[in-house]
Nucleic acid binder design. Structure first.
Length: 443
RNA sequence: GCGCCCUUCGUCUAUCGGUUAGGACUCCAGAUUUUCAAUCUGGCAAGACGGGUUCGACUCCCGUAGGGCGCGCCA
């Protein structure tokens, strides 16, 4: 059984880059009949907030993502403690006593000498006596995992064969002196416990992968498959930020974006599949092929979400928008007819409301350029019932009486009937306006 | 600074040594339409740079430039 997970930290709102990761995981699970776990990585109590945990779930749901399991790291602290004991017993972790300040100074010094800022393992070299002396003075250790120094290799689902030399990395701190755990450790323990088989995440995690593969081995668990997708960035130069909410899913939602427009851009940009309007996440499933993801950083234009939203709107059947229309006051017997008449004309949902006003009146006042023509047209208005053929019949009658045709006929009529020189086809609008109202507008 | 990765139309990409370098989006034009939208047709537009290897290089190698990521007791 394939098991994947999306593991955001609830420290801000999901942005389009997070959505990309979430969607790829969810889609991958659907594609292979697997399970999708939403795991809130909330071990950082300083920054994690419940409102964000809720917001994340709302945003994912808005995108159409459902999860089979919800997990929270804050509820699994005992598991991390047990795992640490196992690593201690196996001699795979060691106590370290430097303070954050000391470590910071060491890094500065290394940088200044042109050396990579890698932990020097000073604590590993401590003798038993030195350690007891430190602890006697009240120092509590944090625990570091001892990296092998070997080159870790894996077959990446996106990037192909990858290798990282763990000798160039610092031994990661797994557990702080107060017993709280760090991301790398919690993540691996969770993935192992939950049977995660495939990890799909952004390429900013490639270096973590080497560390985590060694950690899986240390815990006696076979590492999962890894796939690192490219990162996306706004072509506008605007930076994504969980903290400021820039390019957040919520901002797109508030801006009237269609969730499938956001999803299509989030998933398909930077792949060999053209970004296109799709009706549902299910349509995205066959396109979510990991090997189709580019290895290069990819730029996307947030405006594309607007374009897609518009194109999606044009294809929406009435049933798909009934509720939203009703909420905007567009309801009743004529609502479906109305939707089919105007949808191809809409740039966004708000425009539907303005066309609804055009149909129902009152309409904007306008200058009557050809009063005789309008008067004739008014007298020739056919009897009801009206349908889409009424417009043609009526126009033929007016042409026969006045000789007016083409633009000279249609433009004055459109202006008189709608107050505007543009809009949906009049043959479809006319029956919605109705005879009584049409007659009023032609006076 | 060190390490890893990347570089084809404005943007996302195809090409896996021989192509008029293809597609999608945007934009523009034409058709259609009273108009806008939609639709259809067409068009503009690309291999970062410099060396090699080769009969032949976008494709392979080296270098340069540019970009990204990483190098936390953040996740």
């Amino acid at each position: 059984m394939m098991i994947v997970r999306f593991a955001p930290s609830p420290t801000g709102y999901l942005h389009i880059g997070n959505a990309r990761t979430a969607l790829w995981n969810a889609l991958h699970a659907r594609r292979h009949g697997g399970q999708f776990i939403l795991r809130l990585d909330d071990t950082d109590v300083e920054r994690s907030q419940e409102i964000y945990a809720e917001a994340i779930q709302q945003d994912l749901a808005w995108l159409g993502i459902r999860w089979d399991r919800l997990e929270r790291q804050s509820l699994r602290l005992d598991r991390y403690g047990m795992a640490l004991e196992r690593l201690k017993a196996a001699g795979l972790v060691y106590p370290a006593y430097e303070t954050p300040d000391e470590l910071e100074r060491k890094r500065k010094r290394q940088q200044a000498r042109g050396l990579p800022p890698v932990y020097d393992r000073a604590s590993l070299k401590l003798t038993e006596a030195e350690r007891t002396a430190l602890e006697a003075r009240g120092r509590h250790p944090h625990w570091r995992f001892r990296l092998s120094g070997a080159t870790v290799e894996w077959q990446d689902g996106v990037r192909g064969p990858c290798h990282i030399d763990t000798g160039s990395l610092s031994d990661p701190v797994l557990v702080r002196e107060d017993g709280t755990v760090l991301y790398t450790f919690a993540s691996v323990v969770d993935d192992a416990d939950m049977g995660v088989t495939d990890i799909i995440r952004g390429e900013d995690h490639v270096a973590n992968t080497a560390v985590q593969i060694e950690l899986f081995h240390a815990l006696g668990v076979a590492p999962p498959r890894f796939a690192h997708h490219n990162l996306i960035v706004a072509a506008s130069g605007e930076a994504m930020s969980k903290r400021t909410g820039a390019l957040s899913i919520r901002s797109f939602r508030k801006g009237g974006a269609d969730p499938m427009a956001v999803a299509a851009v989030a998933v398909l940009t930077g792949t060999s599949e053209p970004v296109r309007p799709l009706a549902s996440l299910d349509d995205l499933v066959p396109l979510a092929e990991l090997s189709g993801i580019s290895r290069a950083l990819t730029k996307f234009d947030p405006a594309e979400i607007g374009h897609l939203t518009t194109r999606l709107l044009h294809t929406k059947p009435y049933a798909a928008v009934r509720d939203r229309l009703a909420a905007a006051g567009i309801d009743g017997a004529r609502a479906e007819l109305f939707w089919d008449a105007v949808r191809a004309n809409l740039a966004d949902m708000e425009e539907a409301v303005s066309w609804w006003h055009v149909v129902n009146g009152p309409i904007a006042p306008h200058v009557r350029s050809d009063p005789e023509l309008i008067e004739t047209a008014r007298r020739l208005l056919p009897p009801e019932p009206w349908d889409e053929t009424t417009w043609g019949i009526w126009c033929a009658a007016v042409t026969a009486a006045t000789g007016a045709r083409g633009k000279a006929l249609f433009l004055p009529l459109r202006l008189a009937l709608t107050g505007l020189d543009h809009g949906p086809e009049l043959k479809r609008l006319l029956p919605l306006i109705g005879r009584a109202e049409a007659e009023r507008r032609l006076v």
